[in-house]
């Protein structure tokens, strides 16, 4: 009885603030209002999302998110290995220093790059100091990519670091004992065993990267349309909630499907995710 009572408010909250709102968004996405204000069920919102303009937006979002994920992985994996092998004396401190920027406000972290890349920014200041011509760094696709990598890199490093730390060192010793050189030990033992960490790192970078609208808004300006910007604009500017909902449903499906696929591939335990933070 008490056990049931304990989860009562929680059940209410799940239904009221998670399930119902999502159902409402779904509802909006499959409804269309005609000129005389009548509602009808229709898939036209989804059809519209496959318009070439919006397909470009979707493609661009996917491309830049995948690029950011790949760069984070390439930069982050060696870092995670270095951290994991570091002398215990410095390790805790080094890991903590890696976490600190993550605790800074996300907006501030992105804003910092505006100061660096801007027309009157630090980089251009350095260039002009050497008498070089000014370059427009900000408001480019590269700036958005950089912003993503900067913001999400720790999300890649920490899960991989956690897995590497938990790895039984006797496995590596066994591999060496059996005659494996450094390359074999890495490719046949360390890398395969760290896949769960890589997968959770990949999803922790890809997910926010594909759905962001802040980074693109600040580092590219209004015109650069990622899928996140599209949703935001439909909701707050154009006020077409039906179309905005349809795009949101597509984004949600995209992410939930890729998560499911990754869980299948990795057999990954979601509770492991981000444990390195604490």
């Amino acid at each position: 009885m008490i056990k049931r009572l304990a989860s009562g408010p929680y059940l209410f909250w799940l239904i009221m603030f998670i399930i119902v709102p999502l159902l409402m968004v779904f509802g909006y996405s499959i409804v269309q209002t005609d000129s005389s204000g009548n509602l009808s069920v229709s898939f036209s919102n989804f059809a519209r999302a496959f318009d070439p303009i919006y397909i470009t937006v979707l493609g661009r979002s996917l491309k830049i998110a995948l690029e950011a994920t790949a760069i984070c992985l390439l930069m982050g994996y060696p870092m995670a290995m270095i951290l994991a092998k570091m002398n215990v004396k410095y390790r805790t401190f080094a890991v903590m220093m890696f976490v600190v920027p993550m605790w800074m406000n996300f907006l501030l972290r992105t804003y910092a790059w505006m100061t660096i890349l801007g027309k009157n920014g630090v980089l251009n200041g350095i260039l002009s100091f050497f008498g070089l011509p000014q370059v427009q760094f900000l408001y480019s696709e590269g700036a958005v990519l950089l912003g993503m990598v900067y913001n999400f890199l720790p999300f890649m490093v920490l899960p991989i670091y956690t897995v590497l730390m938990k790895m039984d060192s006797s496995l590596i010793e066994a591999a060496e004992d059996l005659g494996g050189n450094k390359v074999t030990v890495f490719s046949k033992v360390i890398l395969p065993l760290s896949i769960p960490g890589v997968l959770s790192g990949v999803s922790m970078v890809f997910m926010p990267a594909v759905s962001t609208f802040v980074i693109s808004n600040l580092l590219y300006g209004g015109q650069y349309m990622l899928i996140g910007n599209l949703i935001e604009q439909q909701y707050l500017v154009v006020n077409d909630w039906n179309f905005g909902s349809a795009v949101a449903m597509i984004l949600m499906a995209l992410i939930l499907i890729s998560m499911a696929v990754m869980n299948k591939v990795g057999g990954d335990n979601p509770e492991d995710r981000g444990t390195g933070l604490w």
Partner: peptide, 24 residues
């Protein structure tokens, strides 16, 4: 079942959670 619903706001992009609550 409940834990799956529980993980929805974690897995869902913030923007989807944001607009769905706003809609509500």
């Amino acid at each position: 079942v409940l834990l799956n619903v529980n993980s929805l706001p974690i897995l869902n992009p913030d923007i989807v959670t944001g607009i769905s609550l706003m809609t509500l």
